[in-house]
């Protein structure tokens, strides 16, 4: 179409009307964020106060960065922070790809009934609370009655205690999280795969692509958009993972490798009403998460992928 000044004018007018329409549509969303997220945000000042519940935000004294300094000088917090970061990284390189692989594999089951059954089963543990999941793992790996002990006992030995060993504890966290959440994490990928045009597979088949080739060259690129989003979002919440899980799994014997920021704060600050201290730890984590999100988004952009903003 040849564009004349007049038609550009018309287009601008049209798109302005269109934009106005979109802005109006957005009002309820904007209102929701304002009311439920931004109005209560004044609570952030707590991290810079010596906050007392009975004095409130306006009655409590401001102390600047006192609590951040206290965090910095607390060896147990530093240990917990390092653990949080290391565990998060380990999860990122194991659980994240595992979910994608699981979704790809599910997609390859041709037998519809079997596929649906497997899908339903692997979603189930998502609905079990961590208390229950922990007790399932504890029973299975128990140094008294668990499976490894039965095997070792038949050789007349005692099995190592995987549950209270700082060296195996992180692996335990990752395995149990995979057991519980991997199935559910496939939902979004399975949904994305459902949108891939079947004709692409037919075309590939004609080109002589095998199962593996189809998986790598059609399915995976077909969901890459969602994989990238999930990657960035996961990184953006990476430090907030796992309170419930760790809380139910850990014991003082594994604090050295498994105590994370959230469990440390819960155990040692909230009971003593150190709310400001807890808020400072939370704010510190949030800041880092925000930085991670921005950074990973930029990295993804650089790689030429569709980023989240």
């Amino acid at each position: 179409m040849k564009s004349t000044p007049a038609s550009i004018e018309r287009l601008n007018q049209k798109s302005f009307r269109r934009y106005r329409y979109l802005y109006v549509m957005f009002i309820p969303v904007l209102a929701w964020y304002l009311i439920f997220c931004y109005v209560p945000m004044y609570g952030l000042v707590m991290a810079f106060q010596d906050f007392f519940m009975s004095k409130g935000y306006f009655g409590s004294r401001f102390v600047g960065f006192k609590h951040f300094l206290e965090l910095y000088n607390d060896p147990d917090f530093v240990r917990a922070f390092v653990n949080t970061a290391v565990i998060a990284l380990l999860r990122m390189v194991t659980e994240f790809p595992f979910g994608i692989a699981l979704a790809l594999f599910l997609n390859e089951i041709r037998h519809q009934k079997l596929r649906k059954t497997v899908q339903t089963i692997i979603y189930l543990p998502h609905f079990l609370s961590w208390v229950i999941v922990a007790s399932i793992f504890f029973t299975f790996l128990s140094p008294e009655r668990g499976l490894p002990q039965m095997i070792y006992a038949s050789f007349g030995k005692d099995a190592p205690n995987y549950l209270t060993n700082p060296e195996s504890f992180r692996a335990l966290l990752i395995l149990s999280d995979i057991w519980k959440e991997a199935g559910f994490s496939t939902v979004v990928y399975v949904a994305a795969m459902a949108a891939i045009d079947p004709q692409q597979y037919e075309a590939a088949l004609i080109d002589g692509a095998g199962r593996w080739g189809q998986m790598m060259h059609i399915t995976l690129p077909g969901i890459s958009n969602i994989v990238v989003v999930m990657f960035i979002l996961t990184i953006g919440q990476i430090l907030n993972w796992g309170f419930d899980q760790v809380y139910n799994f850990y014991s003082p014997m594994v604090f050295s490798s498994g105590d994370i920021v959230d469990t440390y704060i819960f155990r040692s600050a909230l009971g003593d009403n150190k709310f400001s201290f807890a808020a400072a730890a939370g704010l510190f984590k949030s800041l880092l998460c925000a930085v991670f999100l921005v950074a990973s988004n930029a990295a993804v952009k650089k790689l030429g992928q569709e980023s989240i903003y």
Binding site: D76, S251, P252, M253, R267, S268, A269, L270, D272
Partner: peptide
């Protein structure tokens, strides 16, 4: 007299267990 009771408890608990084991 109470101090940071929970923090101290956490330290004692971890140290006690390490010692007895």
């Amino acid at each position: 007299l109470l101090g940071d009771a929970d923090k101290l408890l956490s330290i004692f608990n971890e140290g006690w267990l390490k010692a007895v084991l």
